[in-house]
Design a protein around this nucleic acid. Structure first.
Lengths: 222, 222
DNA sequence: TAAATAGTGTCTCTTAGACAATATTAT
DNA sequence: ATAATATTGTCTAAGAGACACTATTTA
């Protein structure tokens, strides 16, 4: 930030790319778009775009998210900034990566208006290779998400407002990639005190109907 | 990163700024430089500078760190990227912030060659206001450092290769800002298995001499 | 009544935290 | 001797994990 040091060229461009997660079919899935133009034409990529001259990084991420999915007011968090000189053949491009969590009831079945072609993929089974260094970005996002799941209540961002404890457990299992003990899981959620039972139940086909719960927002937001 | 979206102006500039921590006088201290030119002339700022055209972000941070302090091969970690449009009156400047940890035996008493004027300050008692949004950057760095201290072995980065357990405890206390129980602290360090006793002792004036230990590097680096 | 899902309690082990006395050195 | 620092163990409480049966619904 200081004015000391040599001045850089003016040709640095900055993008905000967003790793958009949701839960579909009890699996953690990520939204990818197929590139219609070079470089990496035809390859799948993490959605994103250039930051506008008078736009904050967060605003750019929110805008791209809206353009890709139509959703607003979802969990959005800056992840990491990628800036290797050779990562974009068009020139110096620095990418501020974000990740977003969208509950399945808000996630569009397919892409929004912006993308030529977009699709959801299981987060650990995306097509390869992805464009640019997007596999590294995706891996970083997965690490962050898994890490935060254990010590925060971030899992609720991937569920509708009303949900069952079994649904919540399936979200955790999908993200962590391992099955959890039902009793221990419920005990832990109960101990956190972040869940409030509602006066409703839902039956999912056969089986005993499940009680619905709502997220009781704790102290911290971000 | 996609080529969709409107193109941004070419005038975005990117800096790498580094929050450099060390331990001095049993306190966590941070290196600040006094700005010699506008904007914020005369104000204290976090050291940093523009990223060169063919330089990675990490390389830029390493270079700035070397220019400010002369040290290399210390803990250096990307922190967060700050990009509010109005944060630099000269135009659009995006700052990728890093934080570095330097052990007191390697930290220069004052600044290196690059800075007009540089000085160490207790991390929670810096001059105010700092230039730009550097108070927010510093606060973010402090949060990250405190958070990592509890679940990683990052404290060793702030000590020489040989150290006593009392020194290590003082580092933790200085960062967390609270005093710790000596027996519980040693128990926890022992349980981590990341420390190896040496065949040496040192006496610090009066009192029983203390055994020296060395850091036994665990599985993970970053 | 069979199949599917929801819901519930105990025991054990590990971990975190409170807590005080002894050991070794310099002055 | 006194002051200064280093070193060490127990008890308790809370949290994590293993583990199996009953309850309610649909087909």
């Amino acid at each position: 930030m200081s004015a000391r040091g040599r001045s850089t060229s003016d040709s640095v461009r900055v993008t905000a790319d967003i790793v958009i997660f949701t839960i579909r079919d009890d699996a953690l899935q990520v939204l990818l778009v197929r590139r219609g133009i070079p470089p990496f034409e035809g390859a799948w990529a993490i959605p994103g775009g250039f930051v506008l001259p008078d736009e904050s990084l967060d605003d750019a991420a929110r805008r791209e998210l809206r353009e890709e999915t139509g959703v607003e007011d979802v969990w959005l968090e800056q992840l990491y900034t990628f800036g290797e000189p050779g990562r974009d053949p068009r020139g110096r491009v620095i990418t501020v990566a974000y990740f977003a969590l969208i509950s399945p009831d808000r996630a569009p079945p397919l892409a929004g208006s912006d993308a030529a072609e977009a699709s959801w993929f299981p987060a650990d089974r995306t097509p390869r290779p992805l464009a640019f260094d997007h596999e590294a970005i995706l891996a970083t996002a997965l690490d962050r998400l898994r890490g935060k799941l254990t010590y925060t209540s971030i899992g609720f961002e991937l569920l509708p407002k009303k949900f069952t404890l079994s649904q919540l457990q399936r979200v955790h299992e999908a993200i962590l990639g391992e099955s959890l003990d039902k009793r221990n899981f419920r005990k832990r959620i109960d101990a956190l005190g972040i869940v409030r039972p509602l006066d409703e139940s839902v039956s999912a086909g056969a089986g005993r109907p499940a009680q619905l719960f709502a997220f009781r927002r704790p102290k911290t937001g971000h």
